[in-house]
Computed example of a mutant assay.
Amino acid sequence: MHKEAALLSNTLADFADSDTAGRKVVIDQIITIREEWKDVRHELTTGEKRKPEPTGRVKPTEARLGISEAEVRAELQKTRVNISKTKKKIEESPEHKNRASWETDLARLEAIKNDYETELIRLKHETA
């Protein structure tokens, strides 16, 4: 499997620089082979099937704009609750292995909160 992926990887140099569609097909094949290889290695190491990657809800990276004032208020409230929960996790478990991830989430949420607050001000002035 590893050899097959390596050989496919070598064929990428044969494509023209502008042929992104052709490269994408090969890259998708390489990714599929690497995932299969991860499954095999995990099963050999642990004796168990590898669990599928979580496909849960993707965390937003920016505020939803162009929504009504009521929706902005609701999103702002949800964001504030998530900020509070994240701060609490950081304070209660300062040595936790996921602290860096929580701090990143906190910064992301603070930025989204600021965007919603700005949008709310804009909407208020628009209707005035």
Rank of each mutant, 00 (worst) to 15 (best):
M1S: 09
M1D: 06
K3Q: 08
A6E: 14
A6D: 15
L8G: 05
S9V: 00
S9G: 08
N10W: 09
N10F: 13
T11N: 06
L12W: 03
L12R: 03
L12Y: 01
F15E: 01
A16N: 05
D17R: 04
D19H: 00
T20A: 03
K24Y: 02
V25H: 03
V26A: 07
D28W: 08
Q29I: 10
I30H: 03
I30T: 07
T32R: 11
T32M: 03
T32W: 03
R34D: 15
E36Q: 13
K38W: 02
D39N: 11
D39V: 11
V40P: 02
V40A: 10
H42R: 01
H42A: 02
E43H: 07
L44Y: 00
T45L: 13
G47F: 01
G47C: 00
E48S: 12
K49G: 13
R50F: 06
K51W: 14
K51S: 12
P52G: 14
P52R: 12
E53R: 15
T55W: 04
G56W: 01
R57F: 07
K59G: 07
K59Q: 15
P60K: 14
P60S: 15
P60E: 13
R64Y: 12
L65R: 12
I67Y: 06
E71V: 02
E71R: 02
E71A: 11
V72A: 00
V72M: 06
R73S: 10
R73P: 06
N82P: 01
N82G: 06
I83N: 02
I83L: 10
S84L: 05
K87W: 01
I90A: 08
E91A: 15
E91H: 10
E92M: 12
E92C: 14
E92Y: 04
S93T: 11
E95Q: 13
H96V: 10
H96E: 11
N98D: 15
N98C: 08
N98P: 04
R99M: 05
R99E: 07
A100K: 15
A100C: 10
S101Y: 02
T104G: 10
R108E: 05
L109T: 01
A111C: 03
K113H: 04
N114M: 07
D115L: 05
Y116L: 12
E117A: 00
T118F: 11
T118M: 05
E119L: 09
I121H: 10
R122Q: 12
L123G: 05
L123W: 11
K124R: 10
K124T: 05
H125A: 09
E126T: 10
T127Q: 07
T127N: 03
